[in-house]
Structure formats: C-alpha cells, structure tokens
Design a protein around this nucleic acid. Structure first.
Lengths: 269, 269
DNA sequence: AAAATAGTGTCTATGAGACACTATAGT
DNA sequence: ACTATAGTGTCTCATAGACACTATTTT
C-alpha cells in the first residue's frame, strides 16, 4: 500500500465559530452617518493571530515553532503568528500565517482564546487571538522540512492543578526558549484539547487519512497523558459511528494485520 | 428570612483565561529596538468587548440589552459593549462596560469567543471579544432598574442542529431587534453554557447565595432546555461536593420547607 | 384532613474499566 | 513453532434515569 501524502480536503473543515451574520441594510440616515464616521478617532490596539500548530510524535505533543530573527524576543521561539490585516477575517489570517510560516494549507483549526494582558508584548498593546491547529505527524514533518522556516519541538507539559501550565519546548539541539506568553498559550491549547477530546473530532485530525484503531488509541493516550483501556476504547469509537472501515488491512508488519478505518464526519449519511 | 441583595464577593471570581505571563526583561539591544518601534506602522483594527449578560427568569434565558441611540444600528438593541482602551486588559474592559452600561459590579464572567468577520460592523473593521456574564435574576432586575440604561429581554432560542442558532429577544412591549451579530453571539453563549454546565460552576452564578436543590435544578433545566430527574440530580450535586448545607430551611411557603445550600468552590477545604 | 412541595428507596439500563483470552499475520 | 500485535468475552462497578413512595409543612 502506498503512503497517501495528499489528504482528503473535505475532512479538513475548520471547526472555528462561524462568522455568518451580517448587519441589516443601512437606511439613509445610517448611510450618511457611516460616510462621515472615523473609526480612528478611538485608540486602537494591534491584533495578531497566533497558532499553536500541534502534532503527536512518539506519544508526546510537538509544536511547530518559528525562530524570531528580529526584535523583540530575538532568538527566542514563537508560535507562527502575525498581524491581522484589515481586509481578512481571523480565519483568513490564520490560514495565511500557516501558509507563510510553515508552508501548510488546509489545516484543521479551532479558535482557542484571546489574550489581552496589557503587558503581554513589549512592543505595546497587542491583543492576540490564539488558535490551535492539528496535523498528522508525518504530514507536518514532511511539509515543514520543505519550508524550513519552522522547526518541530517536543513539548514538556507540567500539570498545574488538573490542567497544563506553561510548557517547555525541546528541540533536537536542546531547550528552545519561548517568546512572549507562548508557553502559556501552548499549555492552554493542550488543556482545551483534553477537555474537548471526547466531544470533538480533534483526534482524527492528528491521524493519517487511514488509521488503525490502535493508532487512534495512541493519539487519545498522548492527548490525555495516560493509558486508555483497549476494549473500552474500541467499543466507544465503534459505537460513535464516527469511523468507517476502509475494507483493507495494514499488512507487511511482523504480526497480525490491523483493520484500517477512515474518519466519517457526523453529518454524513 | 430577609432577602440578601449583596452577594458574597469571593464567589464571583472571573473564570476567564488568565493573562499571567510577562515577557522576560529586555536586554540592551531589545531596549534600543523597542524605543524606536512604531506599532502604528501596521494597520490596526478596532477592538471591542461585548458581554452577553444572562440570567434565568421563569425558566428561560433573559439578557440585558442596551438600546442604541446613536448610529449605526440606531434603535436596535445591543449587548453591553465598548471599545477596549489601550491601558486596560480585556477583563478590565468587560468590568468597565458592565459598570457603565448596567451598573453591575463583581459579576461572574468568562470569555466566549472572538468574532472577526470583516463585515460584521458597518463602521469598518471591528473585532469583538465576546464574554458571557451570569447574574441571579433578582439581583439583575434590581440593579438594572436603578441604572435604567439597559432592559431585560426574554430570549427565544431555536435549536439548529443540536446547538442554538441566533436568538430572538422579546421585551415587555414586544420583539426587540438585535444589532450587528449579537443574536448569533447570544446563541453561542447559550450553547457554550450548555456544553460546560456539568463541568463549570456556571449554574451557581445564576442562583442566589442561598438556594434549595430544586432552585438549582430549575436553573439546570432552564439552561439545558429540558427536564432533569430529581433524584438523579440531587445525587450528582451532593456527590460533587460543590454544595454545603447552610443549616437552615426556607420556611413560610405553603408546603414542607426545603433545605438551603450554599456554593462551596472546589478549592475550599 | 387536604394540598403542596421536599426528599428517598429501589430497580433497571448503560457504559466504562479490568483483564484474560483467542486470532492471525510474519519469521 | 514462536513472536508480536490485533481483536474479543465477560465480569464488575459506577452512575444515570424512571418512578413510586414517604415526609413535613401550611391552610
């Protein structure tokens, strides 16, 4: 069986809270008002998006980090991020940032939270809308290598009263100091992932298009940071209906071949 | 027994994601860079906070809404909100907005999500960080009447594929048309509340300081939009340890008096 | 005593955890 | 035959729902 490097795009729909509603059509008075309105009359902060781009390698979280080669925090490592442009939505900004800094397209993303402490960035008032993004390890390794601006770092997670505190990043050549509040954002991303795991299809975004139930179980265990009972897990996943057998097995290994499954979104027939 | 109008402040801690981390001290080079740095070189959107201030009256959600008496969306009804100032955190902005527009202090709040569609506000690019805030009905009614800038409207919630869609607001004199994307934000606030209900102490913020288990059950039923079994509910709540008997009963009604309980945060001994 | 609400006893259904067992490939 | 991993049978335990029952107050 050949490795599939191109994933099914339809599965990679963003889970982000939608922005559908549009204001009703303006009447004349409102139109006149708007023509004269100057938003710049109010002081404005800067707004960025920062993306915790996560994957699972060898049972532990890894994040794609970009080395800052400009001030501030020069030499430290940061989440892929950037200023939000006036003509793009937050989701568009996330997609652009991922494209430019990691070379990845069509990534599964969800909004995490917005961080607005006054002093979180030494340049001044910068509010950041943090997202997390999930990609299977093989795909991330392959596409990051091509881009080369970002590196993959293992995350060391300390529990802090039930949920993860700020994480430490470790690259192949040792610890990578993190910029700004990004250690905290990564910790919160992992905490959110844990909390949603059984209700959201997040784990399927971390696993290749075709996977065995033990692959998936390993992903759950990595996210939760603990073991999961095999039989119990299989019952739950199969009963959920979120998974459909491909009809093939993964052969060529030195033991009984495992059945391959594919993610089937809940809204499919 | 006398009505308690002042609630215990210690219970009203914000549940918002903290903003503790601060960048490390700048070295000389970074200090020089920062002195010359001009954030305004990048285009900046405007940023607001909007607060879905919710309570439960007669088993249904009500929200505090402010009539817009300026353009745009003049005459429509909006969530209490306002521009974030450069010297205040998001949580500070939420507290200020609640104080100025509704007269409330020390309210239980949590961040909901950030909405950044390019066209969500006709004035231009305005990103809003939405929060929800929860207050017991008696307190909200009393303090809102004093302020008088805001009104309390019943929310009609339509299910839309499992989670609430945009809501309709109904005041004492009929439907209140909502401004901007606020109908959608309110729907999402209710959806979030439902999802967190059994894991977060949200319901305790909607109930007076002292409450009976049937009061609390009614709150759960209102949030979930369905009935909850009495015995099952009591077992769960009592087993959770989040509730401590006051040692008194609510008497004077026309039936057997019910035992009063008080919320006890999980981190108490 | 009647009405009304508070609170409990108890059965059943569901599902998760534990863990030993069987199954099927490669070598 | 042996090893390694895939997959199942089955017991126990915890918990939620159903629902009828008892308890205690006011009128």
């Amino acid at each position: 069986m050949t490795r599939e490097s191109a994933r099914d795009r339809r599965e990679l729909v963003s889970m982000t809270a939608g922005d559908p509603p549009v204001h009703p059509p303006a009447d004349d008075e409102e139109a006149r008002f708007l023509a004269a309105y100057d938003l710049a009359a109010f002081p404005r902060p800067s707004v960025t998006v920062d993306v915790a781009l996560l994957t699972i390698v060898d049972g532990s979280f890894h994040a794609a980090l970009v080395r800052r080669d400009e001030q501030p925090a020069m030499g430290r490592w940061a989440l892929p991020g950037g200023f939000v442009r006036l003509d793009e939505s937050l989701e568009d900004a996330v997609a652009r940032v991922l494209r430019d800094k990691t070379g990845l397209h069509d990534v599964y993303t969800a909004q995490l939270a917005t961080f607005g402490a006054v002093d979180r960035d030494p340049r001044g008032r910068i509010i950041t809308v943090a997202y997390f993004a999930l990609v299977p390890a093989d795909r991330l390794a392959a596409e990051l290598a091509a881009g080369a601006r970002a590196t993959l770092a293992r995350l060391e997670v300390d529990e802090e009263g039930g949920s993860p505190g700020p994480v430490r990043a470790v690259g192949s050549a040792g610890p990578l100091p993190l910029a700004f509040d990004h250690a905290s954002i990564l910790g919160q991303a992992i905490g959110r992932l844990r909390g949603r795991l059984w209700y959201a299809p997040d784990a399927f975004a971390l696993v290749p298009n075709e996977f065995t139930l033990l692959d998936l179980q390993g992903t759950y265990e990595a996210i939760l940071g603990g073991r999961v009972d095999k039989n119990s897990f299989r019952r739950r996943i199969l009963a959920s209906g979120l998974v459909a057998p491909v009809g093939r097995r993964r052969e060529g290994l030195r033991s009984r071949p495992a059945e391959l499954f594919r993610f089937r979104p809940a809204d499919a027939t």
